[in-house]
């Protein structure tokens, strides 16, 4: 029996889909059998970020309504044998997928895969309920902005009310130099407010945008900082105690970069 992990945030645009794609891919790179499930019905993105858009024939709504078998809707990733995607429907709306149907599908996926990564839509309405229903664990993604932290706090409260065992936190898109100048919330501030275990800190990295536009998750480009962060997150999910990249390390990294440039 596998484990279902929902990636959620409350606020939109903080990097749920990017995180889902990268964590899913990183787990597959570590040899796990992984299925990513997109629950953002009507606004599907995960297939685009993964570069699998052109392979979609059936989607999760077809599975829920019995129009196809679950296996028919699963899309095998072109790069990894153990990585699959269950895409969302683009033409329906959130209400087309019921909480019960979603729980059933997640349960069946769990029996076939080591990890089921559920990409949650923004918001706290029906789509959110559907996404968290079958999950054993939750990962809350936030960015170092007041609004994102506020929404994350709200979502954590809702997850706790659903008796989700303590969610984990990913702080995405941190800019070390802005934190240093006091223009951005720092990691400790965020962790103090949200009082959650930190699963990882992902620095702001142009490579992430570039990779997403090419349909290739960042984790596959080995030298980017964000890639390393996501691979560390995947290892922590597997129970590997990888030390967190802290800001000092980041500063060290940038110093090293500057040194490299200076040498050139």
């Amino acid at each position: 029996m596998g484990e279902a992990i929902v990636i959620t945030s409350g606020k939109g645009g903080v990097g749920k889909t990017t995180s889902s794609a990268n964590i899913g891919t990183a787990l597959a790179m570590l040899g796990k059998k992984v299925c990513m499930m997109d629950t953002d019905i009507g606004l599907r993105n995960l297939d685009v970020v993964m570069g699998l858009e052109n392979r979609i024939i059936f989607d999760v709504i077809d599975v829920a309504t019995g129009s196809c078998r679950l296996e028919q809707a699963l899309i095998k990733d072109k790069r990894f044998d153990h990585l699959y995607l269950l895409p969302a429907a683009q033409t329906k709306d959130k209400l087309a997928l019921s909480v019960d149907a979603a729980r059933l599908i997640v349960g069946r996926l769990k029996s076939q895969f080591d990890y089921v990564i559920i990409d949650c839509p923004a918001g706290i309405e029906h789509g959110f309920r559907v996404a968290i229903t079958g999950a054993d664990q939750a990962v809350v993604v936030t960015t170092p902005e007041q609004a994102a932290v506020r929404d994350a706090d709200r979502v954590i409260g809702l997850l706790e009310a659903e008796r989700m065992p303590s969610p984990k936190l990913i702080i995405n898109r941190i800019r070390p130099h802005m934190v240093k100048n006091g223009d951005m919330l720092d990691i400790d501030d965020i962790v103090n407010i949200l009082s959650l275990d930190l699963l990882g800190v992902v620095p702001d990295d142009e490579n992430v945008i570039r990779a997403a536009n090419h349909g290739e998750p960042t984790v596959m480009t080995p030298d980017s900082k964000a890639s390393l962060a996501y691979r560390n997150i995947a290892r922590r999910i597997l129970g590997d105690p990888v030390p967190l990249m802290n800001l000092d390390e980041d500063a060290g990294f940038f110093k090293r970069m500057r040194k490299l440039i200076g040498l050139r």
């Binding site: 506020r150 706090d153 709200r154 954590i156 409260g157 809702l158 706790e160 407010i193 949200l194 009082s195």
Partner: peptide, 25 residues
């Protein structure tokens, strides 16, 4: 006991003691 998070309301006819934080919202 615990964190009172955004969107949560603790209401009581009497005194309230929170062992934990009360977050914005």
């Amino acid at each position: 006991k615990g964190t009172v998070r955004s969107g949560q309301i603790v209401e009581h006819d009497g005194d309230i003691v929170i062992i934990g934080d009360v977050n914005p919202g």
